[in-house]
């Protein structure tokens, strides 16, 4: 299935993209999706902290991602 992915802050710099559509297997979990992205981008793979949000919410790593979900990858936040 195809899922839209967004990248923010230093991850946008590392991928050179603000967003893209990725082909991932049906039933993939948040954790599996993160491994997939780490496999595509070595610089992200080297990071200790790779945060993932699904539809604007932090979901448990075992959560299954569905077609049409909005998945975002980013480093630890630094607002305030």
């Amino acid at each position: 299935m195809r899922v839209r992915v967004k990248y923010f802050a230093s991850f946008r710099d590392m991928t050179g993209k603000t967003e893209e559509t990725l082909d991932v297997p049906e039933g993939v979990t948040v954790e599996g999706f993160r491994e997939h992205v780490k496999g595509l981008y070595e610089k992200i793979a080297r990071r200790d902290q790779v945060l993932v949000a699904v539809n604007g919410v932090f979901m448990p790593l075992r959560t299954v991602v569905r077609e049409g979900d909005d998945v975002a990858f980013f480093p630890p936040v630094s607002g305030g």
Binding site: F8, A9, S10, Q49, F74, P75, P76, V77, S78, G79
Partner: peptide, 20 residues
């Protein structure tokens, strides 16, 4: 909250990242 600061210093640009 997904916000990120980038500081512009004499040494260049630096993304600030928290420790969540």
């Amino acid at each position: 909250v997904p916000l990120w600061k980038k500081e512009y210093t004499a040494d260049g640009e630096v993304w600030v990242e928290g420790d969540r």
